[in-house]
Design a protein around this nucleic acid. Structure first.
Lengths: 156, 156
DNA sequence: GTTGACATGTTATGTCATAACTTAAATAAC
DNA sequence: GTTATTTAAGTTATGACATAACATGTCAAC
């Protein structure tokens, strides 16, 4: 799952089903706003700003004030169904929900495409550095900015 | 240089001298606002928000509008003399200026202390993942949130 | 001493995020 | 089944972060 096109509806459906299962397992509720928010992220298949999400939610009859979007997004991030891309002040649906994972994001500075890759080696490298300092890692975000294959091809 | 106290004036002086040399080498100017901004970051020895920097600059007779701070901070980041901590919407002086390096930041969620560690293994791990996707990394930020030694000791 | 490049000052506005309170819905307790 | 408790959603208001665009000033080169 990276910089290639694929079947959005297919991946959305699978993730949504898993999201529901995950919520049940954790004893939290995947309410309509929350589910719709996840759908919005899945369909966009790129990083989406909170206010952009909010617009869509409002169009669907949900509240139209920022907290509506932020709460739903925070819920999804907390549950591991979405990630926050700090560099872009935006959110994106997680492509491997459920599984424990440490993502790294590759962000194209030209076309804003995003790829989420697994980063197990990165995690362990960071873990090593942290333990040397006596630091306990709880969360980590790793974001790389650069050029995706398509844009790198053009600019070179 | 991590979660231990040390001689601020000493490290500030050394970094400032190196900053000046670096600016000369690169053919850019370390003007008063820029130098003062770097000093502010160095003295704070923690992540400082742009508006906080601005306040100090204004007190020293520089402009008191946001762009004044942001421009100076951007300059320092560009030159590698400061880093932006996206998680905190803040900036911090680089502890190893001049040398090429790929920092990882450990941020204590309790006391906001920050440690900058070298992350060469992390960089190469990311580089590997990126080349598999055909992605060209230009910049990368790695930020870990958790507990510093002191705060971990208290809470456990 | 004029030109051009760069830096700074200033005005205005845009964008992102959350605190605090209210209303409503769902679940638990009785 | 009604009440109490918790959790979620709606709403108001404001706070925090960031930048566009233009005016002014400064310095070096010629």
């Amino acid at each position: 799952m990276a910089f290639r096109s694929h079947d959005h509806d297919g991946c959305s459906g699978a993730v949504l089903r898993r999201a529901e299962a995950l919520a049940t397992t954790k004893g939290v509720r995947l309410t309509p706003v929350r589910q719709r928010t996840l759908e919005i992220l899945l369909r966009a298949h790129r990083a989406v700003g909170a206010y952009e999400v909010l617009e869509e939610l409002a169009r669907d009859g949900f509240g139209n004030q920022p907290p509506v979007a932020y709460r739903a997004l925070d819920f999804l991030v907390e549950l591991g169904l979405a990630h926050r891309i700090r560099r872009l002040n935006a959110f994106t649906a997680c492509m491997h929900p459920g599984r424990e994972h440490q993502p790294v994001f590759f962000i194209c500075r030209t076309c804003d495409a995003i790829a989420e890759a697994q980063a197990e080696p990165i995690r362990s490298a960071a873990e090593t550095a942290a333990s040397g300092l006596g630091f306990v890692i709880e969360r980590m975000n790793i974001e790389a900015l650069g050029l995706c294959p398509a844009c790198a091809g053009i600019s070179e």
